[in-house]
């Protein structure tokens, strides 16, 4: 297992994991902190503690879900200082909706729900959402492809996310991790 190699202080494995996950974790953190600098800082501090505490790690989940859960918790700690709480996982779901398809493994259950919910959106809205988040296209590109103005793309995306959120909120239960 890869994490055992970190435990043995294997720099190459650490580097590979860093390269693979860093950008996705930063983007995931954006859902909580909303600015690039704080997101980068928090993910970097996570990797530093991953390395320095590698001998004390005891991870039962997959490395991927361990990484995302840890970053999520670090973000929530930061929000706690601002006296903000995320009772209904609003930020978590927002972050997953906004993240790219590669994050599927973070929380397969929620991701499946997002996909199902996307399928139920009105056709054009679903198409725009797909292009934006699954294919990673810019608003401009999408507008050109569909021959509509950028403002419409933006509005449609906003509505799509609102609808998704409402659906997801009904079907997700809050979990207090212990």
């Amino acid at each position: 297992m890869t994490l055992n190699k970190i435990k043995k202080n294997n720099q190459d494995v650490f580097e590979a994991l860093f390269e693979q996950y860093y950008p996705h974790l930063v983007k995931f953190a954006e859902g909580y902190l909303h600015d690039l600098q704080s997101c980068e800082d928090i993910v970097q501090s996570f990797f530093i503690s991953l390395w320095t505490n590698s001998d004390k790690l005891s991870i039962t989940s997959s490395p991927k879900s361990y990484f995302f859960t840890s970053v999520k918790n670090l973000c929530l700690n930061k929000l706690r200082d601002l006296k903000v709480q995320d009772k209904h996982q609003v930020l978590y779901i927002e972050s997953l909706i906004n993240s790219d398809a590669e994050n599927e493994v973070v929380d397969p259950e929620i991701f499946r729900m997002i996909r199902n919910a996307v399928d139920e959106l009105p056709p054009q809205m679903a198409e725009i959402f797909q292009k934006r988040y699954y294919e990673g296209k810019q608003l401009k590109e999408i507008a050109a492809e569909l021959n509509i103005v950028e403002g419409t793309v933006k509005t449609q995306l906003f509505r799509a996310r609102s609808t998704l959120r409402d659906k997801l909120q009904k079907s997700t239960k809050i979990i207090l991790v212990f």
């Binding site: 860093y22 997101c39 970097q44």
Partner: peptide
Amino acid sequence: SSYFETGSQIEIKDIDVSSAK
């Protein structure tokens, strides 16, 4: 609010992995 309104502003490809490393 602006994140809720406009969605993500960070593009994966714009994240500077090597300088973070």
